[in-house]
Nucleic acid binder design. Sequence first.
DNA 1: TTGCGTGCAAAGGTTTTGCATGGCA
DNA 2: TGCCATGCAAAACCTTTGCACGCAA
Lengths: 145, 145
Amino acid sequence: MKREAGYNTKQKEKLVDFLINNKDKHTTVQEISAYLSTEGSPLGTATIYRQLDKLVESGVVRKFVIDGKTGACYQYIENEHECREHFHLKCISCGKLIHLNCDHLMSINKHIEEHHGFIIDPSQTVFYGRCADCSAGVSETDEQV
Amino acid sequence: MKREAGYNTKQKEKLVDFLINNKDKHTTVQEISAYLSTEGSPLGTATIYRQLDKLVESGVVRKFVIDGKTGACYQYIENEHECREHFHLKCISCGKLIHLNCDHLMSINKHIEEHHGFIIDPSQTVFYGRCADCSAGVSETDEQV
DNA sequence: TTGCGTGCAAAGGTTTTGCATGGCA
DNA sequence: TGCCATGCAAAACCTTTGCACGCAA
């Protein structure tokens, strides 16, 4: 895996550049599209999706589906090895994505596999909740469920 | 919370019946629609979505967004209180939903809150991976995502 | 009677696909 | 030159919304 697929085109380069420059947060396809347009190197939607698919498949980019109606979110993964081995916390209030490197947490992985026969895929698992900032000040949207 | 909303209609009853009868697995809107049609009590798509929304809001049903292209999955939650206090494991291969009651796991909740200032919402968090059956036998259909 | 629930159809938005053209190797 | 990548537009999908009518309370 991690096949550095196909050709290198200017468009692809621009796309990856953008993703890297925004690796601290996730982006949507329309954000990418909008940015590249104003950048002077517009990229067809179809192409964006196609490239994104490849990047996700090769592990360079991660795809998040928050609620299914906002559209998927993509985020560049700096170190695919690291990110493959830790979990992510996503704040349902501000949308911030937190990379959680923590041995303690990783032990749950082992625990579940050994005690429950279930193999967790950290790359697909995201913990949803509220980050320190949001749980401190705000209370809004307080959904009870 | 848990407002037993509005009127009771035959359609709603049929829908909930179906969900309860399939509480061991998730179902999609089109599965629901297809079933109710063959059942003799077809229900308009719009209505299904509307009812489902209410059920999700009242906590009776849980909504899962697996990959954003298959459509959302819904599943009846038998005991909302219990389900509020434990995590769920969802097999990305067979779709099985596993309720995980485990103190060890619950400790991660505390851990993350204390050490990372992040408050996890178990009712929204689902671990994705492969269940014992699927990780054992199958080598699957090369799905990436 | 009141107003929520339902149906149908249309709209909205995201993602995919087809086909011809252009560019990397 | 061969093949992948790109563009554009159309299609496919899922989900939501508007409006009129029916039914529960």
